[in-house]
Design a protein around this nucleic acid. Sequence first.
RNA 1: GGUCUCGUAGUGCAGGGGUUAACACGUCUGCCUGUCACGCAGAAGAUCGCGGGUUCAAUUCCCGUCGAGACCGCCA
Length: 579
Amino acid sequence: MKKYMNASFNIKNVGEEVTLYGWVQKRRDLGGLTFIDLRDRSGIIQLVVRPEDSAHKIAVTLKNEAVIKVVGTISERESKNPKLPTGDIEVLVKDMELINNSIDIPFEIANDTTALEDTRLKYRYLDIRRENIKDNLILRHKVTMIIRQYLSELGFIEVETPILCKSTPEGARDYLVPSRISNGKFYALPQSPQIYKQLLMIGGMEKYFQIARCFRDEDLRADRQPEFTQIDIEMSFIEEEDIWNVVEEMFKEIFGQIKGVKFDKFPRLTYDECMRRFGSDKPDTRFDMEIQDITDILKNTTFEIFQNILKSEGIINCLVVKNAADKYSRKELDKLNDFVKIYKAKALSYLKYSSKELSGSISKVLSEEEKSSLISHLGLEENDLVLIVADQYPITKTSLGALRCKLGKDLDLIDKDKYNFVWVTEFPMFEFSEEENRYVAAHHPFTSPRKEDLDKLLTDKPHCYSRAYDLVLNGYELLSGSIRIHDSETQKKVFDAIGLTDEEAKQKFGFFLEAFKYGAPPHGGVGIGLERIIMILAGTENIRDVIAFPKTASAACLMTEAPNVVDEKQLNELGIKLK
RNA sequence: GGUCUCGUAGUGCAGGGGUUAACACGUCUGCCUGUCACGCAGAAGAUCGCGGGUUCAAUUCCCGUCGAGACCGCCA
């Protein structure tokens, strides 16, 4: 067995005889003297082979990434390399064994490899040899260890829940697994252990957690994979403050141990306030530039386009970009105009403030009074740029919210060393689905409405708020959670509100509703996106960088070529016929 | 479902309707005893993703397709 980590040696070990294993990172053959960088998980140590050594014959034949065993003596280097942690020492090789040579590698095993991601994904096992992917996996391990320890110490019990589940009709598309034994029937892979963890509460576990794999058959994004890991937590006999406290302390522990950062109590914002100020339910609060409402100032505008928008109950909002008017040419502003159109905004108007004058696209249609009131209301200063969207509330907010984030990045307004946590609370209970032409649960249908909104469940859905909450960090939604419904009466009402008939509810969730009749404790919890935490800690915006074997944007594995066709025989057993 | 970008030696890129497809890294051969981005000299390596069209001529232009990426919708 391999005894030592190669990079664990230092100048104090000089004189020791060691046996090392590892991969040949690089061979430098000077004709007589041959140097080899020997790499293992811990790092690199330099080997020296002299021409008179018996090992020299083998050394000169080694290819990059060959696996070797060496016996030698740690010695102080003649010329040291301060760039390497082991740069003061090297191993004088006495004996070398070639365990397994390598063929030519498709890309260099180095952090600054030139290979693009699809090449790296095809040879992911080589990619994992690179320091940054390897380090991300180690970081992930450390974080899950901190979480396991923290929660265990608080009395949480880790319980595994099934992967083969019943399909739930609400929410994301399920991955389906055909049943061979019950022909024509299907399991679904869990989108989250939601129902099971609530059943565990009814089962009296009181405090549960699981590092749970979840599956969602939806389109991917830079921060979204079809299978991902959720730190799933649920507690009984609690209110919001209890679960927030547990989770908040857990994040302080993680970021304290990994980054050495200390935190005050995490700030809290309601969903409505978030949307109003940041145009997003996952605000990046590392920079200001909040959305400002100028509807009132322009309510008597003579500008016909704005008039029409106001008539149809639209709003006029803007961002003030400090000291940036001269940075945005007409061409640049056109690009921003195209950008907000992605979010369905009709147009982006702009004003530039310079020498106490407003100029720009809509300056001609504004009265002097409107101009001066804009200047004072927005607190404009020399060279400020005002970017304006007039549209319906959701479009105005989301487009300016997205623009705000883009400008934050483009103008380098974001302090990368900041970790800004924000609790977002009081989410709406329902949202209207155009596609299905009905109200659907904004969170999930087991989320409890606010006590004061119980009577709005059926009568005033748009103004019914839930006991759901998110924790946001630097613009990423880290977790979602809620206080759940624990009585079948309320649960029935919610099903009713989202248009689920008694019949359907019974067929889909009968077992669940039944369980609530046997003394269900009040309970709530969270599901935390593990990959997002690791992404932020690792400083990457690509979720694939923190997953050992990730899928591509089309949910395929370039290495194994999954998904793939299967034998006719397998399909026959499952009673499946392809079109 | 939609919008956009990309596809050229092993890797990453340049190029461009017409002669031998440029460069860097890697690979191979030779030389080299203190390198660590080793150095020096030389060599090999490409049906320019695939299919069709336009053209005297396509790797280049057009259409389709496949693959990769980003975003919108979607993701309770």
